[in-house]
Design a protein around this nucleic acid. Structure first.
Length: 928
RNA sequence: GCGGGGGUUGCCGAGCCAGGAAAAGGCGCAAGGCUUAAGACCUUGUCCCGUAGGGGUCCGCGGGUUCAAAUCCCGCCCCCCGCACCA
C-alpha cells in the first residue's frame, strides 16, 4: 500500500465532495479554531502538532454528530516578514542557508523573495499546500490573510470599539533603539546583546553643597539611600548638562543616552572628576553631607556614570573604601585628606540574619579582598541583594522601620520621584548591545505610544470571572491563566514599522501584530462571503460589524450604509449567531502569556457574554532528534517534507502519540519509521480479514469484542479531554495487541470489530481509514458515527476464560524452566467444595456473610478453618466463575503448542500437597 | 525572585487527582523463527536471586500517615518554562 498515493486520492475526493464545508443546520454546532500561522517561513512539525490536534478533534466531533466549523487563515502582519525580505535582498548568507536547507525553498525562488508581498505570496501558497497534503478537514472557503483590505476594515472596527470603551490610551515606554537606523531594533537585527533586557535604574539626585549642580546617582536599590556614606566618581572626564532645567553632572555616555529619552538635554561643558573629589554633596531624605570620592569600579557606560556608596550593603562600595583607607598614595594624588576616608563608617540599615556588616560578611564568604576581585564582588553583590530584598527588614534608622525591603524599595522610589529628588534611567542589563549596522543601541523612550489598558481592574475582573467558567485543558493551566491575567500590564499596541492595519484615528501608527489577532475567529464567518465576492471592503462600514457581530443598529440604516440587502444582512447575522462562540481554541503553550490572554480580553471587551470563548487547550513543542527547532537558525523539519517522507497519516499519528498536553514531543525519525511499519501491518491485517465470511461465534470472539469495547470507551474518554496520546494508545496500539493475540489464538472473525476499529482510527489516520472503509462501504468514514461504548457487548466470562488460559500458560512455562526434560503437564482443578466457596463468595463479596452462609453446609463446616483461609485468598483477586475443565479442553491444542508439553487434566498424578494449593481460577500444576 | 510544570526501571514516557502488580506502551538491547545473507517481519526475554508457578530490592533525597505508598502529608535537593511589547 502506497500511503502518499491513497492520501492524495482521498484528499481530492473529499474536496470534490465538499464534505468539510460547513453551513448552519439543525445539528448542534462545534466551532474549533487553531491559531493561524505566521508566514515568515514554511510550516514545520511544530505547527503540525497544534494543527493536527485541532484536526483530529474536529474530525472526532464531526463523527460525534456535531456540525463542525474548522477554518484557517494566515498571519502576515508585523515586522519579521519585512526583516526577512531585507535579509534576502541583502543576500544574507545565513538566511539563505537556513531557508534553502531547512525551509526547503529552492534557491532561485528564494532569491526572488525580496519584498514582503512576494514573501507572503510564496509562503501562503506553500502553507496552503502543506495543510492540504496532511489532510486537514478545513473549510477552505474561509481562508484569508491579515493584510486583506477587508480584514483591515474589521481590525479598524475593533479598535474603534476599544477606543470608545476607553480601553486604549496614550503613554510612553522604553525600547531598544539604533541611533544610526533611527529605528527600534528587533532580536534578529542584533549583532550582540540578544539577552540584554531593559533595566530600570532609580536616579537619586545629590546636590553639591551650596550649589545647584546635581550629582544623579543611579542605583537599583533606592532604599539604601539611608546608608549612603559618600558618592563615587571615576577619575575621568565628565560633562555638565542641562537636563529638564537642572544642571546634571554625568558621564559623557550618559549624556548621549539621555538625548534619546523624553528629557530636554543641553550640553554645557566638560569637567574633570578630580576637581570634585573631596567636596561634599547632600544626601536626599536624610540631608547628611557626604564626600565625593574616586573609585575605579565605576562604569561610565552604565546609567549616569555616578554611583552612591553604601558600604554596609554593597560589597563594591565596602571594598573601595577599604582600598582607599589602605592606599594613601591615591588619596594624596587627588589631594584628599586621609581623615576624610578614615571617618567613614558603614551604616547598616537593613536587618537580616547576617551578623555585623552584611557587605563585609558576604565579601569574605566569596573571598573578595579588593575592588580588583571583580567576579567575586559581583557574586557577593548578587547574593546579598537577593537575601536582603526577599528576607530583609528596614531598620529604625530609616523612615520605614520594620518594613520589608521589597516594599520599602517601591516606597522610597516613589517618594524620591514625587518630591523631585529622584528620576528613572533605563539601561541594558548586558552590554554591549549592537545593531546589525554596527552601531551601539540605546534605550529610547517612545512617546505618544498607544496602549491597550489591560491593567484596568474592571476589565481584568471580567476576564477572571469568565475564566472560572471556562474549560482549560489541561486543567492546571487554569491557574496559570489566572496568574497571567493578574500580571498582565498595559501593552503598547502600535508600531512604526511593519505590515498591518493603521490605527484608524492616528494613521502614523500600525497596529502591532499580536494586537490584530485577538477576535479574528469571528471574521471566518464573513470570510466565506468575502471570498465569494458578495462582501466587499466598501460594504464593511462600522455599522455593518455592529449589526452582524453585536446585533446593534437599525437594519434599514445598516443596509443603507453598507449598501447590502436586508435579507443578506440578516443571513450573516444568523450565521454569526449560529457559529459563535468559539467552542474550543487549541494552541501551543507559547501563546498562553500573550495571544490567548488577548483573545480572552478582547472577546470580553467587545462581545456580549454569550459569545465569550468556551474552552482553550494548550499543547507543548516539538523538538527534532532532541534538538530545539528554530525558524531562523535551524534545524527544522517542514510539514511538507515530513508528509512527503513518511506519509500524512504516519506523521499525524506520530505527532499525536509522541506526547500529551503541554509536555514536549521529540521527532525521532527512527521511531517514525517504526510507526510506519505498524500502520502497514494494520492495513495488512484489515485487508486480509475485512471481507472474510463470518463463521460461528466462539468464546474467543466474545473476548475480542468485549475487550475491544473497553478500548472504545477508553478512547472516547481520552478524546473528551483532548488526550490524543492516550486515545491513540488505546485505539491503535492496544487494539493492535488484542488483534495480534486473537490471530495467534486462531481467531477467525476479526471482521466483527473491523468496522468500528476503522472508525475509531479515522480522526487520526483519516486517509488509510477511508481507503480501508471503502473496501466494504460507499459512504465516507469521515462522516460516519463514531463508535460508542456498548455495555451489552461486555462479556466478563469470556474475558475471564481468556485470562485463565494466559495465566495457565504463563504458570506452566514458569515451572517448566526448572525442569530438565519436561513432557507432561498435569492440571488439577480445585476440588468441588472450593468451587462452592468461590461461587458463594463471588455472590456475597464479603468475608463474614460468606462464612455464615457456607457454615450452613455440614460438609464445609468440618473444614471451617480451610474455608476461611480460602476466602481470604479469594478476596485478594477478582473472581469470575468459569468452567475451568471445559476451557482447558477447548484450548488444549493451543496450550500444548504454547508450552510444548502434553496437557492432561487429572489430579491423580499430582502430589497431595500440590493439589491442596489449587484454588478456583488457579489450578494445581504438576510437570514431569 | 514571582508564577507554572517536573524529577519513574538502559532511554523516551504512562501511572499518580480517586493508595493495593517490578510498575502500560514505544525505542534500544538479547535470543529464537524467517531469509543465501543483511534488512524488514514474527515470537520471547530484558532489576537481582531462585532446579516448581516463589522471594528480594525499586519510582530525586529524608521523614511521617496506613494492614498497604511511585501514588497521601511534611521537609530538603535538582531540572525546565514564562516574566512581554516580540511573533
Amino acid at each position: 500500500m502506497n500511503f502518499r498515493e491513497i492520501e492524495e486520492k482521498w484528499q481530492r475526493i473529499w474536496q470534490e465532495a465538499k464534505i468539510f464545508e460547513s453551513e448552519p443546520d439543525d445539528r448542534k454546532k462545534f466551532f474549533i479554531t487553531i491559531p493561524y500561522p505566521y508566514l515568515n517561513g514554511n510550516l514545520h512539525v511544530g505547527h503540525t502538532r497544534t494543527f493536527t490536534i485541532g484536526d483530529a478533534f474536529a474530525r472526532y466531533m464531526r463523527m460525534k454528530g456535531y456540525n463542525v466549523l474548522f477554518p484557517m487563515g494566515f498571519h502576515v502582519t508585523g515586522t519579521p516578514i519585512i526583516g526577512l525580505a531585507e535579509l534576502i535582498e541583502k543576500r544574507d548568507s545565513k538566511t539563505i542557508e537556513v531557508y534553502t536547507k531547512y525551509h526547503d525553498v529552492p534557491l532561485e525562488e528564494l532569491l526572488n523573495l525580496t519584498t514582503p508581498e512576494k514573501i507572503v505570496a510564496y509562503f501562503s501558497k506553500e502553507a496552503l499546500e502543506s495543510l492540504k497534503c496532511i489532510g486537514y478537514s478545513i473549510d477552505w472557503r474561509r481562508v484569508f490573510t491579515t493584510t486583506d483590505v477587508c480584514y483591515q476594515k474589521f481590525i479598524e472596527w475593533q479598535y474603534w470599539k476599544l477606543k470608545e470603551k476607553g480601553l486604549i490610551d496614550k503613554g510612553s515606554h522604553p525600547v531598544r533603539y539604533c541611533p544610526h537606523d533611527q529605528n527600534p531594533v528587533e532580536d534578529h537585527d542584533l549583532l550582540a546583546g540578544e539577552d540584554a533586557t531593559i533595566v530600570e535604574y532609580t536616579v537619586i539626585k545629590f546636590n553639591l553643597e551650596g550649589s545647584d549642580l546635581v550629582f544623579p546617582c543611579a542605583t537599583l536599590r533606592p532604599e539604601t539611600v539611608y546608608g549612603v556614606t559618600n558618592i563615587w566618581l571615576k577619575p575621568a572626564k565628565y560633562v555638565v548638562a542641562k537636563v529638564n532645567g537642572e544642571k546634571w553632572f554625568i558621564s559623557k555616555e550618559a549624556y548621549e543616552k539621555l538625548l534619546h529619552t523624553d528629557k530636554k538635554v543641553e550640553f554645557i561643558c566638560e569637567v574633570d572628576a578630580k576637581d570634585f573629589f573631596g567636596k561634599k554633596v547632600v544626601v536626599p531624605l536624610t540631608n547628611r553631607k557626604v564626600p565625593i570620592l574616586p573609585a575605579n569600579f565605576v562604569d561610565l557606560d552604565n546609567a549616569t556614570g555616578i554611583v552612591m556608596s553604601v558600604p554596609a550593603h554593597a560589597p563594591f562600595d565596602f571594598a573601595a573604601i577599604e582600598d582607599l583607607k589602605k592606599n594613601e598614595e591615591i588619596l594624596k594624588s587627588f589631594g584628599l585628606d586621609k581623615s576624610l576616608v578614615e571617618k567613614i563608617e558603614p551604616i547598616v540599615i537593613i536587618k537580616t540574619d547576617l551578623e555585623g556588616i552584611p557587605a563585609k560578611k558576604v565579601m569574605e564568604d566569596f573571598g573578595a579582598k579588593s575592588q580588583k576581585d571583580f567576579e567575586a564582588l559581583e557574586k557577593a553583590t548578587k547574593q546579598l541583594y537577593k537575601k536582603e530584598f526577599h528576607t530583609g527588614l528596614m531598620m529604625e534608622n530609616t523612615e520605614f522601620n520594620g518594613e520589608k525591603v521589597a516594599i520599602a524599595k517601591e516606597k522610597v522610589e516613589r517618594k524620591l520621584i514625587d518630591s523631585g529628588l529622584g528620576d528613572v534611567f533605563y539601561e541594558f542589563s548586558e552590554k554591549p548591545v549592537i545593531c546589525r549596522c554596527g552601531t551601539k543601541c540605546v534605550v529610547k523612550l517612545v512617546r505618544d505610544q498607544w496602549f491597550i489598558k489591560y491593567s484596568k481592574a474592571e476589565w481584568k475582573n471580567a476576564v477572571l470571572k469568565h475564566l472560572e467558567r471556562m474549560e482549560i485543558i489541561p486543567d492546571y493551566y487554569k491557574e496559570e491563566f489566572k496568574n497571567k491575567i493578574e500580571w498582565l500590564k498595559d501593552k503598547a499596541c502600535a508600531r512604526r514599522k511593519g505590515l498591518g492595519t493603521r490605527i484608524p484615528w492616528d494613521k502614523e501608527w500600525l497596529i502591532e501584530s499580536l494586537s490584530d489577532s485577538t477576535i479574528y475567529m469571528a471574521y471566518y464567518i464573513l470570510a466565506k462571503h468575502i471570498n465569494e465576492g458578495s462582501l466587499k471592503a466598501e460594504n464593511l462600514v462600522p455599522e455593518f460589524f455592529d449589526y452582524v457581530f453585536l446585533g446593534e443598529g437599525k437594519i434599514e440604516e445598516v443596509a443603507r450604509k453598507s449598501k447590502l440587502g436586508i435579507e443578506f444582512l440578516e443571513r450573516l447575522r444568523r450565521e454569526f449567531e449560529y457559529w459563535y462562540p468559539v467552542d474550543l481554541r487549541s494552541s501551543g503553550k507559547d501563546l498562553v502569556a500573550n495571544h490567548l490572554l488577548f483573545y480572552l480580553f478582547h472577546h470580553i471587551a467587545i462581545f456580549p457574554e454569550r459569545y465569550y470563548p468556551k474552552a482553550i487547550a494548550v499543547n507543548g513543542y516539538v523538538s527534532l532528534e532532541g534538538k530545539k527547532m528554530s525558524k531562523s537558525k535551524g534545524p527544522l523539519l517542514t510539514m511538507k517534507k515530513a508528509v512527503k517522507n513518511y506519509g500524512a497519516d504516519v506523521t499525524r499519528i506520530y505527532i499525536l502519540h509522541a506526547s500529551e498536553y503541554d509536555s514536549d514531543a521529540d521527532w525521532k525519525s527512527k521511531e517514525v519509521e517504526s510507526l510506519a511499519a505498524h500502520l502497514k501491518r494494520f492495513c495488512g491485517i484489515v485487508s486480509e480479514n475485512y471481507m472474510k465470511e463470518p463463521s460461528e461465534i466462539t468464546t474467543l470472539d466474545r473476548w475480542l469484542v468485549s475487550r475491544f469495547q473497553k478500548l472504545v470507551k477508553e478512547t472516547n474518554e481520552a478524546m473528551q479531554k483532548l488526550q490524543t496520546r492516550r486515545a491513540l494508545n488505546s485505539a491503535f496500539f492496544e487494539v493492535m495487541n488484542l488483534v495480534r493475540w486473537y490471530l495467534k489464538r486462531g481467531g477467525k472473525n476479526l471482521s466483527l470489530i473491523l468496522d468500528d476499529w476503522i472508525k475509531l482510527l479515522s480522526p487520526f489516520a483519516p486517509h488509510i481509514c477511508e481507503e480501508l472503509w471503502h473496501m466494504k462501504h460507499d459512504t465516507f468514514v469521515s462522516l460516519e458515527k463514531y463508535p460508542e461504548y456498548d455495555e451489552s457487548k461486555i462479556n466478563e466470562v469470556a474475558e475471564a476464560c481468556e485470562e485463565y488460559i494466559i495465566r495457565l500458560i504463563d504458570d506452566i512455562n514458569e515451572i517448566k524452566k526448572f525442569m530438565e526434560n519436561p513432557e507432561v503437564a498435569y492440571i488439577g482443578i480445585a476440588e468441588e467444595w472450593k468451587m462452592k466457596v468461590a461461587r458463594v463468595f463471588s455472590e456475597v463479596r464479603n468475608v463474614k456473610d460468606a462464612m455464615k452462609k457456607l457454615m450452613e453446609d455440614d460438609e464445609l463446616r468440618k473444614k471451617g478453618k480451610e474455608v476461611l483461609d480460602l476466602i481470604k485468598k479469594l478476596s485478594m483477586e477478582k473472581i469470575t466463575i468459569i468452567d475451568e475443565k471445559y476451557v482447558i479442553e477447548e484450548n488444549k491444542n493451543f496450550i500444548e503448542s504454547e508450552t510444548g508439553l502434553k496437557v492432561v487434566i487429572s489430579s491423580e498424578k499430582i502430589p497431595k500437597e500440590k493439589i491442596k494449593a489449587a484454588i478456583p481460577g488457579k489450578p494445581a500444576i504438576y510437570i514431569t
